[in-house]
Nucleic acid binder design. Structure first.
Length: 765
DNA sequence: ATACATACC
DNA sequence: TACTGGTATGTAT
C-alpha cells in the first residue's frame, strides 16, 4: 500500500498522465510540453477536481501494478503456448483480409472553431476556442500552439494563452453546416455513416467504379465567384484574402493544386478519376459550399481510414494504398494511442509493458493475450495486422438516452428532487420525439468531490412519460439521500438515463414485429430527405398494437410471461446476439463440430472458433463479395422452391441492420415479394438461429425433438419443429398484422441523426 | 441486472 | 469562480 503511494508521490509522471496535456492532436506538434504542463498543474493543484484525478490515477496505477504481478508469474511454457495460439489466430485473421474496398474517413478541420471564424473575420488571426470558461469544445490552430485544446476548461486555457478569445457554442449553426456537408457526402456514398456533426465514414468503392467511365464534364467544377455575398450564400472569393478565413497559415499541403489556391474568378477545375481525385473533389465541394476545409483518409478499412484522416490534417488527405505491404509498413510506426478505442488508460497499461507503437503490439501479442481480456487482445491483434471493418454499418438503433446537468453545489433535498423532476421532464420530451419506451431508468450523481455514482432500476413495463420516469428516479434519489443522512448529498451534477427500449410502439415488454421492423428499414431509406414530425405514427402504431394485442395475446402472455423471446427482438440481430448465436452453436450443440461456426448469412460452416474472424466472414457475406463466401438462397429442405412466395422474406442486410436493400428502389417491401433470390434470406432460418441461442428454452439440448419456436409476430411459442407448420402460423399472424399495418401512413425515420435534438454533444476533440 | 470505468466526439 | 454532455461499451460482480 505504502509502496504504491510513495511511488506515485515520487514519480511525478504518474500524476501527470491524467492531468497533463494531450498533444495527441493535429496542430500540437512540437509544443513546450513541460512549460504547458507546469501551468496546467499550477492552475489545477488543490482543486477538488485535481484531488479526484489523483485518486483515479492511483487506481489506474494499482491496476497496472496488478498486471505486472501477473506478468511476473507467467511461465516460459505458458508464453510459448500463448505464442502458438497467437500465431494460429494471426494466420486465421490474415485469411480474412480484404483489400478490395475503398473506405474514406472525412473530418472537418477544427469544426466549431472554423465555423465561428468564418462568420467573424475578426477572429481569423487570433487564438480562439469555442466553449466557456468551464469547458472548451475545440480550439483553432493558433490556440493549439499555446496548448489550448478541446476538453480543456476555459480558465486554464486563459492561463496558457491570456489573449484567447472564447466564443460560446452555437449548435444550430454547426448542425446547419453539418447538413450541408452531409449532402455532399451522399453524392459519393448514399449510405455514409456520420460519426458526429463533422465527421463521417464513406465507402467510395462504388463511386470510383462508376467514375471510371465518367466524362470530363461530370468531373468539372466551378469556383464560386459572386462578390459581396454573405457567407450564408455559400459563395466566396478565392482571391479575396480578407474574406477567406485564414485558418491554417502553415498547414501541410498534401496536394500541389488545392482547390482554392490562386484560383481566378470563373476558373474551373477538372478532377481525375482516381480515388485521390474523387476525394479531393469532395473536399473541394465542401469548401466551396461551406467555406470550411475538411481532411480525409483513404484506406482499405475503417480503422485505417480514421487514422489516415488525421495524417495530413488540416486541409489535407492521405491515401494508404490497398496492398498488404503498404498497410503493414504504415502500421509499424503507428503509436497505439492513435487507434480508435485505445485511450489514456489503455495506453498507459500498454506502455507499462513496453508497447507504444503497433509493431510492439505484434511483438508482445502472446504476453498481451495472457494479460488482457479476449475482446481486448483480439482487438489489439486486428490492429497489429492492419485489419478493420471493410463495410460501413448503418447507424444502429439507439440504446440509451440521457440528460444531465452540472451546477453549483446543491445540497437541499427539495431542490434535488425538483431538479430530478426537471431532468425527467426533459428526457420524457426527448423520448417522445423519437417515440421511445424504456424499461430501465438510471440516476447519475456526482458529488462536489467529483465522485460519480449511478443507480439503476429496471421496471417490469416500459415507460415514457415524465411522471413514470420521475417515479423511478425519485425512488433512486431518495434512497441515496437516506443512505447519506444525516449528512446531505452535496451534488454538483445530476443526470437521468433511460435504456432497454422496447422498440417504440408498445408498452408491453415485447418486441417489435417483423412487419414493424421491415417498415422501419423502409424509413431509413427515407431518412435523408424526410423530416416530418413523428408523433402521429407512434400514436397510431400504439393503437394498432393494442388492437393486435387484444386479438392474439391471451395465450402469449401466459406462455411467455415477462421474459419475451430474445433474438429477433428489435428485429435486428445485433453483433452481440450474433456472438451468442455462435456461442450456442458451438457449446450447446454436440453435433456441431467445435472448430466450425455456421454463418447466419450463407449458412456455410466457417472453420474457426474466433468470433472476430467469424464476424469478418459475416461482413464479407453481407457485402456480397463475389470473391468471398456469398450469401446464398437457402430454401428449407422440406419446402419447394415455389414456396418462396409463401414465406416472409427478410432482406438479409436488415438482419444485421444494414442498409444495402436501400438500393432496391422505393417500392414497399410487400411489392418486392418474391424477391431477388440473392438478396433475401428465408426468415425461418433466422428464427432457427434465434432458437439455437436460447437452449434453455428448449429441453436443454440440441437433440431435443420438440424445440419451441417462437412466433416473431404474436410472440407465442409454437410446439413444433416442423417449419411448414410454423410458417403457417406465422403467415396467419402476419396477415392479420399486415392488414392493420397497411393502413398506416409513411413513417418518418425515428433516428435521423440530422435533426435529433440529442446531437448537441458533438464536440470536435 | 447493476455499478463503475473507459472511450469517443 | 470555474473541469461538460451524450452515447456506447468493457469489466467485474
Amino acid at each position: 500500500l505504502d509502496t504504491l503511494e510513495e511511488k506515485n508521490v515520487i514519480t511525478e509522471e504518474g500524476f501527470l498522465s491524467r492531468m497533463a496535456l494531450n498533444d495527441n492532436k493535429a496542430g500540437m506538434e512540437g509544443l513546450d510540453r513541460d512549460k504547458i504542463n507546469k501551468i496546467i498543474m499550477e492552475t489545477s493543484k488543490g482543486s477538488r477536481f485535481y484531488e479526484n484525478e489523483l485518486k483515479r490515477e492511483l487506481q489506474v496505477n494499482q491496476r497496472i501494478e496488478k498486471m505486472m504481478l501477473q506478468k511476473a508469474q507467467i511461465t516460459e511454457q505458458q508464453l510459448k503456448k500463448a505464442q502458438a495460439e497467437v500465431e494460429r489466430m494471426a494466420a486465421s485473421m490474415e485469411k480474412s483480409r480484404d483489400l478490395s474496398r475503398v473506405i474514406v474517413h472525412v473530418d472537418m478541420d477544427a469544426f466549431y472553431a472554423a465555423v465561428e471564424m468564418r462568420d467573424c473575420p475578426e477572429l481569423k488571426d487570433k487564438p480562439m476556442a469555442v466553449g466557456s470558461m468551464s469547458m472548451l469544445s475545440t480550439s483553432n490552430y493558433h490556440a493549439r500552439k499555446f496548448g489550448v485544446r478541446a476538453a480543456m476548461p476555459g480558465f486554464i486555457a486563459k492561463k496558457l494563452c491570456p489573449d484567447l478569445i472564447i466564443v460560446p457554442t452555437n449548435f444550430d449553426k454547426y448542425r446547419a453546416v453539418s447538413n450541408e456537408i452531409r449532402e455532399i457526402f451522399a453524392l459519393y456514398d448514399p449510405h455514409f455513416q456520420p460519426l458526429s456533426l463533422d465527421e463521417a465514414f464513406l465507402d467510395f468503392t462504388d463511386h470510383i467504379e462508376q467514375r471510371k467511365s465518367w466524362p470530363e464534364s461530370l468531373r468539372t467544377h466551378h469556383y464560386h465567384i459572386i462578390k459581396g455575398k454573405p457567407p450564408k450564400m455559400n459563395q466566396w472569393l478565392p482571391e479575396d484574402k480578407d474574406l477567406s478565413p485564414v485558418l491554417f497559415e502553415d498547414s501541410p499541403v498534401s496536394s500541389p493544386s488545392l482547390p482554392c489556391s490562386g484560383a481566378a474568378a470563373g476558373a474551373v477545375e477538372v478532377f481525375g478519376t482516381s480515388v485521390e481525385e474523387a476525394v479531393r473533389e469532395m473536399r473541394f465541394r465542401i469548401e466551396q459550399k461551406t467555406m470550411l476545409t475538411a481532411s480525409a483518409g483513404i484506406a482499405p478499412n475503417m480503422m485505417l481510414a480514421k487514422v489516415c484522416s488525421d495524417k495530413n490534417k488540416p486541409n489535407g488527405q492521405y491515401v494508404l494504398p490497398s496492398t498488404r505491404e503498404a498497410v503493414m509498413d504504415f502500421i509499424q510506426t503507428l503509436p497505439v494511442r492513435k487507434i480508435f478505442g485505445i485511450g489514456k488508460v489503455s495506453e498507459k497499461m500498454l506502455n507499462a509493458l513496453g508497447v507504444s507503437n503497433c509493431s510492439h503490439l505484434s511483438q508482445q501479442m502472446a504476453l498481451l493475450s495472457l494479460l488482457f481480456s479476449d475482446t481486448s487482445w483480439h482487438h489489439f491483434m486486428e490492429v497489429s495486422l492492419g485489419l478493420g471493418h471493410t463495410f460501413i454499418p448503418r447507424h444502429e438503433e439507439r440504446k440509451s438516452m440521457s440528460t444531465e446537468r452540472t451546477f453549483k453545489e446543491m445540497n437541499q433535498t427539495d431542490q434535488q428532487l425538483a431538479l430530478c423532476k426537471t431532468l425527467c421532464q426533459d428526457l420524457a420530451g426527448d423520448m417522445k420525439k423519437e417515440g421511445l419506451q424504456a424499461k430501465t431508468v438510471t440516476l447519475k450523481l456526482k458529488n462536489v468531490n467529483f465522485e460519480v455514482k449511478t443507480r439503476a432500476q429496471t421496471l417490469l413495463y416500459a415507460i415514457s412519460t415524465e411522471e413514470e420516469i420521475f417515479a423511478a428516479a425519485k425512488e433512486l434519489l431518495k434512497t441515496e439521500i437516506e443512505n447519506e443522512s444525516p449528512q446531505p448529498l452535496r451534488l454538483r451534477l445530476m443526470g437521468v438515463r433511460v435504456s432497454a427500449f422496447v422498440t417504440c410502439d408498445d408498452k408491453k415488454p415485447t418486441q417489435r414485429s417483423i412487419i414493424g421492423f421491415l417498415q422501419a428499414s423502409k424509413n431509413d431509406k427515407q431518412r435523408q430527405s424526410e423530416k416530418e414530425p413523428q408523433q402521429s405514427f407512434f400514436q397510431r402504431a400504439h393503437a394498432l398494437r393494442l388492437q393486435l394485442q387484444t386479438e392474439s395475446s391471451k395465450s402469449q402472455e401466459e406462455a411467455n410471461g415477462e421474459t419475451a423471446p430474445t433474438s429477433v427482438s428489435s428485429g435486428v440481430l445485433t453483433s452481440k446476439e450474433e456472438s451468442e448465436t455462435v456461442h450456442a452453436s458451438t457449446s450447446g450443440c454436440e453435433e456441431q463440430k467445435a472448430e466450425t461456426l455456421t454463418c447466419p448469412v450463407c449458412f456455410q460452416p466457417v472453420e474457426t472458433t474466433d468470433l472476430n474472424i467469424f464476424n469478418r466472414h459475416i461482413d464479407a457475406c453481407l457485402h456480397g463479395r463475389p470473391d468471398k463466401p456469398n450469401r446464398s438462397m437457402i430454401v428449407d429442405s422440406d419446402s419447394d422452391e415455389d414456396d418462396v412466395e409463401n414465406h416472409l422474406m427478410v432482406p438479409i442486410s436488415n438482419v444485421r441492420g444494414k442498409c444495402e436493400v436501400e438500393k432496391e428502389g422505393e417500392e414497399s417491401w410487400l411489392n418486392r415479394i418474391p424477391p431477388q433470390k440473392d438478396q433475401f434470406q428465408s426468415v425461418q432460418k433466422v428464427f432457427l438461429i434465434s432458437e439455437e441461442k436460447k437452449p434453455s428454452q428448449q429441453t436443454g439440448s440440441c437433440n431435443s425433438k420438440s424445440p419451441a419456436l417462437i412466433c416473431p409476430v404474436c410472440q407465442c411459442s409454437q410446439e413444433t419443429d416442423d417449419l411448414n407448420v410454423f410458417n403457417h402460423h406465422v403467415d396467419l399472424c402476419l396477415n392479420q398484422e399486415v392488414l392493420l399495418e397497411l393502413r398506416r401512413p409513411t413513417i418518418p425515420s425515428a433516428r435521423n441523426t440530422n435533426n435529433s435534438s440529442k446531437q448537441a454533444s458533438n464536440y470536435t476533440y
